[in-house]
């Protein structure tokens, strides 16, 4: 998992773990596969996807990632932004 710095362009993994079985996911469906800009690091937290099932939970970096609404929903008028907390395990550096 790469360490990401503020200003980095990132893509959210296009993945649907809930299609493979029971899952607890804090990555909203509307950002998966979409590109945004990392604006700040929020520290490190234990992976909620494991905590929810009482499994050993590794610590993950948590980031604030900013998306333009037009990159999420092309028909958005007028334009706005959406700021989302995402774990490093869901992000790919562009």
């Amino acid at each position: 998992m790469p360490t990401l710095e503020p200003g980095a362009k990132v893509r959210v993994r296009l993945d649907w773990p809930e299609a493979r079985g029971p899952a607890h996911i804090r990555t909203p469906h509307y950002v998966r596969g979409r590109e945004g800009t990392l604006v700040r690091s929020l520290g490190e937290f234990r992976n909620p996807e494991d905590l929810a099932f009482a499994r050993p939970a590794p610590v993950l970096p948590l980031y604030h990632v900013l998306f333009s609404a037009k990159d999420l929903w092309p028909d958005t008028r007028p334009e706005h932004d959406v700021l989302v907390e995402l774990y490093g395990s869901w992000l790919e550096a562009l």
Binding site: R26, F45, L62, E79, H80, V82
Partner: peptide, 29 residues
């Protein structure tokens, strides 16, 4: 997340067009 200006209007909140709306989706910790 889809139509923040529409939601704000229903609360009677009308912001200048030059004000950018940033929706904070509280997804994690």
């Amino acid at each position: 997340v889809r139509d923040p200006r529409g939601v704000l209007a229903e609360w009677g909140t009308v912001l200048p067009e030059s004000t950018r709306i940033r929706v904070v989706d509280s997804t994690a910790d």
